[in-house]
């Protein structure tokens, strides 16, 4: 089976400029710095990491909302990096995005119809309104949004319903890949599971592939087949969902997993945690050697000298640590 999405050595950098007229580059923020992975059709890759690790930038870089500095992106056999702006406009139908905040991602002046129909008009040009309307209604059905809401505005909906509108819009052009950037983080607890279930249903129905970006490990575990853990612009561990939770290899993954509190008081009283020191270091000047060496609980001399390779530790379980 060939991968639907293949990313190789992708780098997205942002120059940090100073000065009003004569701008000079004072530093480079390497938000995504050499990331490679593959995503199979119909599967979900969970991308986890803390704020500032570059997970959202990676998601946006893949669909070229940011221009990568180097690297290769292939979606469905086509080279995305080499596409011209015109080509990209057409091909973007195949890869869509769902954003975190459904209060910000929907235009408050547009009705549900306008919002969901916009990609259809963009792709097809002016078309018979009835054809468009039929499509919009079908899309509303598939995200379980009552048809009678078609003339309503975003402010009339709750957060969960708004996220359904955003999902319907993403589905409009029958994409194969959807980048979900924290799609449930802004929602209430009792609504999160509804949206997760909907995403899983839609995946089965339309054979969608998801890149599911989230800081919430529990949600990622529920929806993903494979999980990649990011730290300071690099993937530090990549494995199947079961493998990652059963035997996490990278010390950062181990700390991340142990930091999540379980909704179970008895377990919480007995659990042993790995507490990480400090905060994320300044991403414009990441530490030499292993990027995690400032916070790692297993750090050895070698970690300050050499950057560890991202290698297979057995059974397609990749980890970038000298000790694994």
């Amino acid at each position: 089976m060939s991968a639907l999405l293949r990313v190789e050595d992708l780098r997205v950098h942002f120059p940090i400029l100073k000065g009003a007229i004569f701008q000079r580059r004072v530093a480079v923020l390497k938000a995504v710095d050499g990331v490679s992975f593959a995503l199979q059709a119909g599967e979900t890759l969970g991308l986890v990491g803390e704020s500032g690790c570059g997970k959202s930038t990676l998601g946006r870089g893949i669909i070229r909302l940011y221009q990568p500095v180097s690297g290769q992106i292939t979606i469905d056999g086509e080279d995305v990096v080499a596409m011209s702006a015109d080509e990209l406009k057409h091909k973007r139908a195949g890869f869509q995005m769902i954003f975190q905040d459904p209060y910000a991602s929907l235009n408050p002046r547009m009705t549900v119809f306008d919002i969901i129909a916009e990609p259809l008009y963009t792709a097809w040009g002016r078309r018979d309104r009835n054809v468009v309307k039929r499509n919009v209604l079908e899309l509303m059905d598939s995200v379980s949004l009552a048809r009678k809401f078609i003339r309503r505005y975003p402010h009339e909906f709750s957060g969960g319903q708004r996220q359904r509108i955003a999902i319907a819009r993403a589905l409009a052009l029958k994409p194969k890949l959807i980048i979900c950037d924290e799609p449930v983080s802004a929602l209430d607890v009792s609504i999160q599971s509804q949206i997760l279930n909907l995403l899983i249903e839609l995946q089965r129905e339309f054979n969608l592939s998801y890149l599911f970006i989230s800081h919430d490990l529990s949600a990622v575990k529920h929806i993903s087949q494979n999980i990649a853990v990011m730290y300071l612009g690099k993937i530090v561990e990549l494995a199947s969902c079961e493998e990652l939770f059963r035997a996490p290899q990278h010390p950062y993954t181990q700390a991340l997993l142990s930091a999540v509190p379980y909704p179970d008081p008895r377990q919480e009283r007995q659990r042993r945690r790995i507490l990480l020191r400090d905060d994320l270091p300044d991403p414009t000047c990441p530490p030499r050697g292993c990027r995690f060496n400032t916070r790692c609980h297993k750090v050895v001399d070698k970690c300050y000298r050499d950057e560890p390779l991202f290698k297979d530790v057995g059974g397609k379980h990749f980890s970038a640590c000298h000790l694994s």
Binding site: S158, G159, G160, Q161, D188, V189, S190, I191, Q192, S193, Q194, L196, N197, L217, S218, A219, K221, H222, F245, L257, V260, Y262, P263, D264, Q267
Partner: peptide, 22 residues
């Protein structure tokens, strides 16, 4: 609420969610 939480410490196939919204 307790049933609808995705959890790290428990294996589950389906998440039974609470229908509707507050």
């Amino acid at each position: 609420l307790l049933r609808s939480l995705p959890r790290l410490d428990v294996e589950h196939e389906e998440l039974p969610s609470i229908a509707g919204s507050p």
